[in-house]
Computed example of a mutant assay.
Amino acid sequence: MYSAFEIRRALANPVRIGLECNRLYHRRGYRRAYNPSGVDVFAEDWDSLILLDACRYDLFERHSRLPGDLQSRTSRGSGTAEFLRGNVAGRDLRDTVYVTANPQLYRYREELNATFHDVIHVWMAEGWDEEYGTVLPETTTRYAREAAERYPEKRLFVHYLQPHYPFVGSETTFDKGHVEDPDGGEDVFWLRLTDGRLDVDRETVWDAYAKNLDLVLPYVESLLEEFEGRTVVTSDHGNLFDERVFPLPMRVWGHPKGIHVENLVKVPWLVHETGTRKEVAAAAPVSEGRTVGEDVVADRLEALGYV
């Protein structure tokens, strides 16, 4: 089940062992690929779905002034890949266009095997900001507007990266770039906070996280004003800030996959309606199947803490 590398890495950092024990519990020994208690977002009634990556419910509730009816939902994942496995894997979504700033669908494209009418990978060369190591919200918004104009008879799924780090709205440095981890591994920034190698107080990190949400909300509001029909604003998962998980009690930062505690899976579900509903129709995929080198994918994932 585990490779020799994974075993060596875990032994070198016991925090990984604790995370894996909790993951085994929540995933029932890996018999679950995702959180079955979560909402099936594509079975819900909407014309456009705007997703804010890694946005926990309580942060959104405190900071959002977006118009609409705010509810909550339980996500099918505590990480983006798990969210995608629970919602798009193997599905016929030819009535939907996915505009995404996150490389995870592309990374797991063969495993997920989802069929969208079109997928617009904003994170590829022209959409990626090299200075910040992310896709800026104004870029995602521009691509979303273009997709809405081009595909008026399709459901639109818009995936922003914010408030996921790097924290563009803050002058922090601890979340920017990549720090080599002698153990190797994923989500290095959050792992270094969890195991104590990075000493930054909770208030500082929370403030940076909140500013990243504040940065993206005006762009989301502009889309709510422009999109016709029923638009939902939600998230793929939440985020932990030195909070305890179970059953093995330990304090954790970030959004480790496969751990389904409340602040990782409780997400906002804001429903906004304006104008007339779309008349949605499925159609054959039009994507040109654009590809990029695996080195580009690895670079993007590393900047976002996935490698």
Rank of each mutant, 00 (worst) to 15 (best):
T140I: 02
T276R: 15
P152I: 02
A81D: 02
L84Q: 09
L301V: 03
A125H: 15
P152D: 00
A281V: 13
F227H: 14
H26V: 06
W46P: 02
P36L: 14
V200W: 03
N212Q: 04
T172W: 05
N35W: 08
R109V: 08
H255A: 12
A125C: 03
L156G: 00
E243F: 07
C55F: 12
V122H: 02
A54Q: 13
H272M: 09
G177R: 02
R290W: 14
G196V: 04
R277M: 08
E262T: 10
L224Q: 07
L217W: 09
L264T: 05
A298W: 01
A281Q: 13
P163W: 04
S75T: 15
P67E: 06
H255S: 11
T141Q: 15
H178N: 00
V286I: 10
G305Q: 01
H164K: 03
V267T: 11
N87Y: 14
D295G: 05
G254C: 13
G68C: 03
F157I: 03
A114E: 01
N113S: 13
K266T: 09
C21K: 11
E279K: 14
T139W: 05
T140F: 02
G86C: 04
F227A: 13
A10Q: 06
R91N: 09
A144Y: 05
P166G: 05
R73G: 07
V296I: 12
Y165S: 01
D118M: 09
A281W: 10
Y165R: 12
S235K: 06
L270D: 01
E153G: 07
F167D: 00
T80G: 02
A12R: 12
W206F: 15
P163A: 06
R142C: 09
D199F: 03
A10T: 12
S222F: 12
G127S: 07
Y34M: 08
F116Y: 15
W46N: 04
M250A: 05
E153K: 14
D295H: 07
E279M: 13
R31P: 03
G293Q: 02
L264M: 11
R56I: 07
D92S: 10
P137A: 06
G177T: 00
Y219M: 09
L304C: 11
D175E: 00
N13D: 15
Y143E: 00
F60L: 07
R192V: 01
E82M: 12
A283G: 08
A12W: 13
Y106M: 03
R27M: 15
D118C: 04
R230N: 08
G305Y: 00
P14H: 12
L93P: 02
G79Y: 09
V280F: 05
Y132A: 02
N87S: 12
H272D: 03
V205R: 07
A284C: 04
E273Y: 08
T96V: 11
V188Y: 01
I50G: 10
R85H: 13
P152N: 01
F116M: 09
P14D: 07
P36F: 15
T139P: 01
Q104M: 14
H117S: 04
T139L: 01
T194G: 00
